[in-house]
Amino acid sequence: MTRRSHSTTQLSQVAYAAPFVIADRLLRFAMAGPNPSALDQREWQRMLDEKWTAAVQGSWAMSGAVWEAYCEAWFNAMSGAWTPWSMPSPADWWVRGAQSGERILSAGLAPVARTVSANRRRLARRKT
């Protein structure tokens, strides 16, 4: 049995929660019509702020993860240059590259998954 990657779990969280959040917000905005209440306007502004915040946090996290992957690859290449008998095989390079890609994607998805899941819980509580 294969282990699911962390980014797959995050994508599943987003895919599960996002339709509920979108439907709730669109219904609220449609019911408000041309005269939204102060609560509706705050929800709209919150939605816009959350999207920008998650995008910026995700891009910073991904750039940090790219830098870590670069440093790790450089260190591995340099340590192999000094001790060629400990140089990883090409298959090991592929595995390390895939793991680095997974860490980069997971770092970028974390703020989005966290925000969407929190909105799902918050909007579900508000209805009751």
Rank of each mutant, 00 (worst) to 15 (best):
M1R: 05
M1Y: 03
M1D: 03
R3G: 04
R3I: 11
R3E: 11
R4N: 09
S5M: 09
H6Y: 09
S7L: 10
S7R: 14
S7K: 14
L11T: 03
L11P: 07
L11W: 09
S12I: 03
Q13T: 15
Q13Y: 05
Q13K: 15
A18D: 08
V21K: 02
V21T: 02
V21L: 04
I22E: 07
A23C: 05
A23T: 08
A23R: 14
R25Q: 09
F29D: 06
A30R: 13
A30T: 14
M31R: 10
M31F: 05
M31C: 06
M31I: 04
A32K: 02
A32H: 05
G33K: 03
P34V: 12
N35M: 14
S37G: 14
A38E: 15
L39G: 08
D40N: 12
D40V: 05
Q41W: 05
E43D: 10
E43P: 00
W44C: 06
M47Q: 07
M47G: 06
L48S: 12
D49L: 13
E50F: 00
E50W: 01
K51A: 13
W52M: 13
T53C: 12
T53Q: 15
A55K: 02
Q57T: 02
Q57N: 08
G58M: 01
G58F: 00
S59V: 01
W60V: 10
W60G: 05
W60K: 12
W60L: 09
M62S: 11
G64I: 02
A65M: 06
V66D: 01
W67V: 06
E68V: 10
C71Q: 15
C71T: 12
E72W: 04
A73D: 11
W74T: 12
W74F: 04
F75M: 11
N76I: 09
A77S: 12
M78T: 06
M78P: 00
S79H: 07
G80Y: 02
G80S: 13
A81H: 06
T83A: 10
T83M: 08
T83L: 07
P84T: 08
P84N: 10
W85S: 14
W85F: 11
W85R: 11
W85P: 01
S86D: 12
S86M: 07
S86K: 12
M87F: 12
M87W: 11
P88G: 10
S89D: 09
P90M: 06
P90T: 06
P90C: 02
P90W: 02
W94D: 09
V95R: 13
V95C: 01
R96Y: 04
G97I: 05
G97M: 06
A98R: 12
S100G: 12
E102M: 03
I104C: 03
L105N: 04
A107Q: 02
G108N: 05
A110F: 05
A110D: 15
P111W: 01
A113N: 09
R114L: 04
R114F: 04
T115Q: 14
T115E: 13
V116S: 01
A118F: 00
A118V: 00
A118W: 00
N119W: 00
R121M: 08
R122C: 08
R122K: 13
R122W: 08
R122I: 06
A124M: 13
R126A: 13
K127E: 10
